[in-house]
Design a protein around this nucleic acid. Sequence first.
DNA 1: CGTCTTAAGTCAGCCTTGTTGACTTTCCAA
DNA 2: TTGGAAAGTCAACAAGGCTGACTTAAGACG
Lengths: 166, 166
Amino acid sequence: MADGTTGGENLLFLTDEQLRKGIEAMFFAYRGFTADPDRILADMSYGRAHHRALHFINRSRGTTVNNLLAVLGVTKQSLNRVLRTLIEDGLVESRVGREDRRERHLYLTAEGAELERQLSEAQRARMRAAYRAAGPQAVAGFRQVLEAMMDDSIRSHYTALKDGRP
Amino acid sequence: MADGTTGGENLLFLTDEQLRKGIEAMFFAYRGFTADPDRILADMSYGRAHHRALHFINRSRGTTVNNLLAVLGVTKQSLNRVLRTLIEDGLVESRVGREDRRERHLYLTAEGAELERQLSEAQRARMRAAYRAAGPQAVAGFRQVLEAMMDDSIRSHYTALKDGRP
DNA sequence: CGTCTTAAGTCAGCCTTGTTGACTTTCCAA
DNA sequence: TTGGAAAGTCAACAAGGCTGACTTAAGACG
């Protein structure tokens, strides 16, 4: 139909203008999303990559390096550089697998858990304020759109974590 | 109250669990968000920074370097490196200001506009699919949460662009 | 047992994109 | 006429991606 509707359903939210606003919103919001942890990390000799590693090791205690690689979507060499410093600094512990001794299982130490808690609390504080300002219905929509935006290959990692599956 | 409600209003959406899901959704979704333009850019000798510059020059034709700096949130030196290659390659034109001749006003050339169109169409396609899958109400919530997540100092740039203000 | 594969780690080198700091040129405005 | 803002440039550095090549250890399997 010429008026932008189909069978009574309004599709105005799919115009290029609307999409552009969503794109710009993603760009600016992501800056805010990372701003607070980045400020904390800047004082130490760590960066965003260390935060991500700490986050997912905390979320999936005892995860293997290979699994972490898949979740983070980076190369082994890239992750290894980050992981090595975290292990050397005593924030992460790497244990040889009991069933398959080729694997290394990763755990946060008490110190690592403390930094992770500090970083994620800063990030949650902003998210909490945004959620509160927008309300529960908006939050549901927010999560729906984000989930639909993920690559198919990535979404399974997200839903597994979301539902607390191993 | 001990059951997570306050005056009848359910605040379950503000639990740390819910916030964590939102944080992980942002992380994975942003990867999808940038994936398609990144693939196109990988073939050329350009990166994500070039895409961002092209996008905002297109959105605010004739913008000054200083304004672009504020919107992108990077240093002059960082932007300059990107801008120089775009100008050298004939994708962006830099015109001396007519009123204030210290300023440079930035415009896309026909070639620059063509690349910008290609990149943003790839990005819009994914956004369109996500919007369509989630529906108009979810999209409204998505935008509300993102806007609330931005830094205060950044939100004005977003709303100015959103409403088409100069 | 021997071979193949997988998991992990490492070394070297490259690129993009961010940063600081110092400096120049241009030119508006007080 | 002079101060300061806008723009641009050079140098140096760091984080964090990447590829390629290679080693070590150990499970899998014919």
